[in-house]
Amino acid sequence: MSLLKVQSLNLSFGGVNAIDALSLTIEPGPIHSIIGPNGAGKTTLFNLITGVYVPSDGQILFEDKEIAGKKPWTLAAMGLARTFQNLQIFFNMTAIDNIMVGMHLNSDTRFLPSLLRLKSIIRGDNENREKSAELLKFVGLGDYIGADTDSMPYGALKRLEIARSLATQPKILLLDEPAAGLNPAETGELDGLIQKIAASGVTVVLVEHDMKLVMGVSDHIIVLESGKLLCEGSADEIRHNPDVIAAYLGESGRNL
């Protein structure tokens, strides 16, 4: 059984086909990357898979169940999680509270007990706060447990988003340009983090322009162009594919 399957997917914005008859399959387990020039439709594909957009046509199957058009919070409960190309941190909350929102589906959200702050609410919050602190440490943000998000550096916020999406206990994690804006040292640490996440049993799908990172971590690479599948394969196959070199990598791509 494939984990995620997209079949003849279409989405157009006012006549522009952002996703154009796209079909692809993500098998469970390894690290997958989706690459392609700006405007290829990578973010739009993530938005479709996570229910932020509804496709004009086509199917999205998650564990063989049709999910196209389902609400994002339903999909989160099914095990889909993501980060965002443009930071979507809750800047009105502390770092740890950001992560606790990620535990929403595993929290006691009954209204009356919350109003009265019953013991069960306090107990659940204490447990989740501890788990959140663990997650912060897992992504290397142990120093920011009590921090306000508006005083955290950009690189830390990128990781905070990853930790927050992991808090939903996903089966698949979609990372949209996690290395954008990071310095080489931070990108190196991100490389390690992605492998750690994959090793913990979460299937990772990475959208990224940093080819060194992509070629290094990916077991499977998908290349998009103008909303269509250009080709897919292993890092080696993609590196030497003349179509990819022409459309995206350029001649220097062979050396990555």
């Binding site: 996570t50 932020v52 989160a76 965002f84 979507q88 009105n92 929102v101 990620g102 988003e161 939903t168």
Partner: peptide, 19 residues
Amino acid sequence: RALRSVHGSEVAAETLGVD
């Protein structure tokens, strides 16, 4: 926290499971 997350970022909130 769910209420505050709606204020912070609706798209992040909904993809984290907040209706």
